[in-house]
Each structure stands twice: as C-alpha cells, then as structure tokens.
C-alpha cells in the first residue's frame, strides 16, 4: 500500500481533479447564462455528449485536437439552437424539450458509434498536448497542477470573464433582465428572443467544448453515454453557485476531487469496492445541494416561455 503522502497519489489527485472539473466548469458557465436568462436547459447533458462524440470522430479522422474541439463546439451549437427553437419559438415545455434532446443525443451517438465501429472502441493516437507552465510544473507533489491541457487554463480564465460579462456589461444586464422580467425588458427595447438565443448559442459552444475535452483531451476514446450525468452535475453546480459564475469553481472543483479520488484511492490500494468510490461525485452533489441550495431564489421568469403581447 502506498503512503497517503506519496508523490504519485498527489500527482493523480491534483492533476485529476483539475482535469475532471474542466468540462463541468465549461458547461456550467454556459448553463449559468442560459438560466440567468430564464431558461432551464436539461439537454445540457446531450449537448456535452454530442460534443464529445463529434469531437472524437473529427479528431480520429484528422488526428488534430483543435479540429476535434471545434467540431465538438459546432455540435453543441447545433443542439443549443435546436433547443432554442423548441422552447423560445415553439414555446414547448422546457423540461420536455430538454429531456427529449438529452435522450436523442444518447440514442444518436450510440447508434452512430455502433454503426461506424461495431463492437470496437478505437483510441485516438496521442494528440493531446499538455501545456506545462515553466518552473511551476517542476514543483514536487504539485507538478500536475501546472501541467494541464490548454483548455483547462482557458476554463479558469473564463470564470472571471463570465462573471464580468454577466454582472458588469450591458449584455449581462440584458440577460438577467430577460430572466427576471422579460416583458419589462422588452418594453425597454431588449430583444428577449435574441438574448435568449445568444445565451443558448454561447452554452452550445461551451458545453460542446466541455464534451470534446472529455473525449479527446482527458481521454482519447468514446464510450456510450460517456458524460455519465456531467450535464446534470453542471446544472447542480450552477444552482450551488446561485447563478454567480464566480461560485462555479467550487462546485466543479469538488466534483473533480471526488472523481479523481476514484483513481487516487486505487493508487493507495485501499480495499474499498470500486462502486462506492464511483458513487462519490453523485453523493457529494446531493449533499452539497442539501447544505447550500435550500430555498434558492430562482430567476423570476425561470422556465416560463415569453409571449410577446
């Protein structure tokens, strides 16, 4: 049994935590904007999954990680706009549309994967280039913190930017106004529909990127329903953060710790059945919601379609 203070344990724990939290951070930022604008997108899981699948296929063909990431973003945008059409234009119940999009993504990715590869699970040859930050990545124990994929650093930078956009710019103000009182926002000349479409477009980019990160940066393969609830966890993280992007980091970080413990505890050689470790992230989300998200005040127009008089 390795000592708990051994370097491999910390390398896996720190590095794994940040890698695992990246897709959550990205998707949660997107969902934060969408929910602040008054829409609940339960199809987030599906956007991430389709992003992961599309990115995997593109990266497998081109062996270029950036083409893969861009394809993943495009896939997320397509689903985001489709969802927008359903709930903004057709005013379908958002939960029904979200579940429908989610189930559709699970089905279509599994279907296409099976048709393309049969029972095989191809692996992309090593294309992930981690960016080691000079000097910092040489610190013992903590080296893995500063040896992450470029997208992980970008996700950290995006957090303060998202906070700034949502709270300090007129676009952010419009988004929040549309989420609180769309009729009043409309009277003041805010285009409610366009604002909501934009938030979904933005979410599509980020959720697609998050899914793509999962399949071609964190891992290098695709498996059926590989997002495993990450979309729903991202939605929970947004609720924990009370729609403030600054708070997203904590929830995502905690998910990352739980997730990387899955590997960390295996390195320690602890004799805990693997299933209990795999449950950790989901248990943690429920526990945190229980502590932090009681009687949360939602945006006033949450889940209500806007009908122009």
């Amino acid at each position: 049994m390795n000592s708990i203070f051994s370097e491999p344990f910390f390398t896996v724990l720190f590095g794994g935590t940040l890698t695992a939290s990246t897709p959550i951070i990205l998707a949660a930022i997107g969902e934060d904007f969408v929910e602040s604008g008054g829409i609940l997108n339960l199809g987030l899981e599906g956007m991430m999954l389709l992003g992961a699948f599309t990115a995997f296929i593109a990266a497998l063909i081109t062996e270029n990680v950036y083409i893969g990431l861009l394809s993943g973003m495009a896939a997320g945008v397509v689903l985001g706009l489709l969802f927008g059409y359903l709930v903004i234009y057709l005013k379908i119940n958002q939960i029904v549309a979200g579940l429908g999009i989610g189930l559709f993504a699970i089905g279509i990715t599994s279907l296409l994967f099976r048709i393309l590869f049969g029972a095989e699970f191809p692996v992309i040859p090593d294309i992930t280039d981690k960016t080691a930050i000079p000097l910092l990545s040489k610190i013992p124990y903590a080296s893995s913190i500063f040896n992450q994929h470029l997208i992980t650093y970008i996700s950290w930078i995006l957090l303060p930017i998202a906070w700034w956009v949502l709270y300090k710019t007129s676009f952010g103000l419009n988004v929040r106004a549309v989420g609180e009182n769309p009729a009043a926002a409309d009277v003041h000349g805010v285009n409610v529909y366009r604002t909501r479409y934009l938030t979904l477009l933005f979410e599509g980019v980020l959720a697609g990127l998050g899914g793509a990160f999962l399949s071609i940066c964190d891992l290098s393969f695709f498996v059926f329903h590989m997002t495993q609830g990450r979309g729903f966890i991202a939605i929970a993280v947004v609720m924990l953060a009370k729609w403030n992007p600054a708070g997203i980091f904590y929830g995502a970080f905690l998910f990352g710790i739980c997730h990387s413990l899955t590997y960390g505890l295996q390195i320690l050689g602890l004799d805990v059945p693997r299933e209990f470790i795999l449950m950790l992230p989901y248990v943690a989300v429920i526990a945190l919601l229980c502590i932090l998200a009681r009687n949360t005040r939602f945006p006033a127009a949450f889940c209500n379609p806007y009908e122009r008089e």
Partner: peptide, 21 residues
C-alpha cells in the same frame, strides 16, 4: 442497432412538444 428505437422514442417526445404548439 437497437439504439435506433431510443432515437425514435426521443423524437416522439420532441414532436409531442411540437404537436402541443
């Protein structure tokens, strides 16, 4: 593959929403 049925059922849920519209 059997996944096609899953796709069809998801589409039915989406088109149910469209029919309400």
């Amino acid at each position: 593959p059997v996944f096609f049925v899953q796709v069809a059922e998801a589409l039915m849920l989406i088109f149910f929403g469209v029919s309400e519209y």
